[in-house]
Amino acid sequence: MNLNTKITLLCSALTLIVLGGLQVKSAYGAEDSVKLEKQDWSFSGIFGTYDRGELKRGYQIYSEVCSSCHSLEYLAYRNLEEIGFSEAEIKEIAAEYEVKDGPDDEGEMYMRPARQSDKFVSPYANEKEARASNNGAYPPDLSLMSKARKNGPDYIYGLLTRYKDEVPEGMEIADGMNYNEVYPGQQIAMVAPLEDETVEYADGTKATLQQHAKDVTTFLTWAASPEMEERKRLGIKVILFLVIWTAMLMALKKKIWAKLH
C-alpha cells in the first residue's frame, strides 16, 4: 500500500462514519410526516451571506407584525447596526420602547426610553401575561427559532406560508385553533400572521406573502446566527491554510520516509 492508498482509506473510513451519523440523524425527525419544501436561501452554502435587502425588510416585518406578540430577547438594539441601520436610526428605534430602570436617588424604579445597549423589549412582562393575552397559548421567543427547529429556515417559511382554509376531511379543529400543514399536529393557535401586502415595503419590492415569509425568515436566521458570515469567511481561510499545510506535510513525510526504503 502506498501513501495515497492509505490516505484514501483513512478518508473513506471517516466519510463512512459521518454517513453513518447522517443515517442516524435522519431518523431523529422520522415521525414528522410533513415534508418541508427546500427554499433557495441567500445564506446557504459555504459562501452564503444574508441578503441585505431581505434582512432590512425582514426587520420591518418583525417590528410591524411579529413583535406585537413575540419577543427577541437575546438581541440588543445595537445589533441592528450589523444589518445596515445607522446609529441615529437605531437610537430612534430604541427610543420608541420603554424599559424599567433604577432605583433613582429617591429609591424609586422609573421608566425611561430604551437605549441602543438595551435588549429588545418584550411585548409581555412575563409568560403568564403572554398566555392571558393569547387564549392560553404562549408565543415563543424568536431569537433562536431558526436553529431550534429541524431545517429551521425552511420550517419557518413553511409555517408562515402553509396556512390552509380548507381542513382535510375527518380533522376536527379545536376552538381558537388554525389549520397549518407544517406545525406539528397541524393545529396552531397563531392566526395566519402574513398575507399579500401585510407590510408596505419602502424599497418597492413586491409585497407578496412569499416575499414576506422569505424576508422575515432571513431576518430570524440572522437573529439566531449573527456570527454566520464572519464564521464562514474565517472558515474558508482556515480550511485553505489547512489543505496547503497538509499537502506540505505529506511531501515532507514522503521525503523523510524515503530514507528508510
Partner: peptide, 27 residues
C-alpha cells in the same frame, strides 16, 4: 522524525475534517 511527521500529517487531515464542521456545520 518518522512518527512525528506521520502524526503531524494525520493531524493536518484531522483538523481539516474537524474544522469543516466547526465553521460550516457547527450544529
Amino acid at each position: 522524525p518518522y512518527y512525528t511527521i506521520k502524526d503531524l500529517l494525520g493531524l493536518g487531515v484531522f483538523l481539516t475534517f474537524y474544522l469543516t464542521f466547526v465553521f460550516f456545520a457547527p450544529d
